[in-house]
Write a protein that binds this DNA or RNA. Structure first.
Length: 127
DNA sequence: GCATTGACGAAGG
DNA sequence: CCCTTCGCCAATG
């Protein structure tokens, strides 16, 4: 529902003046990902109605570090189940470790049984 | 205002 | 089956 307020950030956050931005929605959806489950940028994009722009979701996540509450960005991977965003964490290994703490197995930066733990906001969250 | 880039994804070779 | 290209939209130079 995007009721969270965007922190007045530095310069990196876009559309700050707009009352609404899909950035908030992205964060909101990501926060609702159950522990031990993961989703993909494309799934979030599809939920937001911009499935053709999954890149924007990833772009939005770039500001996930500046928002509150915490956004479990480690639960969001690309459609292949690869930890494509690990490089954007504090440490390159943090993303994998966080996932492993949730009983998610990772080999070669790719989630094992990705399809089984995949959480589709369009299907699970429904609106 | 055009060109490049990006935590993606699907399609083509 | 792996690699390349294109499309998408917004931000940045």
């Amino acid at each position: 529902m995007a009721t969270n307020k965007i922190e007045k950030s530095k310069t990196a956050l876009p559309t700050l003046k707009a009352k609404y931005s899909f950035f908030e929605d992205v964060y909101d959806v990501v926060r609702q990902i159950p522990k031990g489950r993961v989703t993909s940028y494309g799934a979030i994009a599809q939920y937001l109605g911009t499935k053709l722009s999954a890149r924007m979701v990833g772009w939005a996540m770039n500001g996930s570090h500046t928002v509150s509450p915490y956004v479990p960005a480690h639960r969001v991977v690309n459609r292949n189940g690869m930890l494509s965003g690990k490089a954007h964490f504090d440490t390159p290994t943090q993303m994998q470790e966080l996932l492993e703490q949730e009983n998610i197995k990772i080999v070669k930066e790719t989630i094992i049984d990705f399809e089984k733990i995949f959480w589709d906001p369009c299907n699970e969250l429904s609106f």
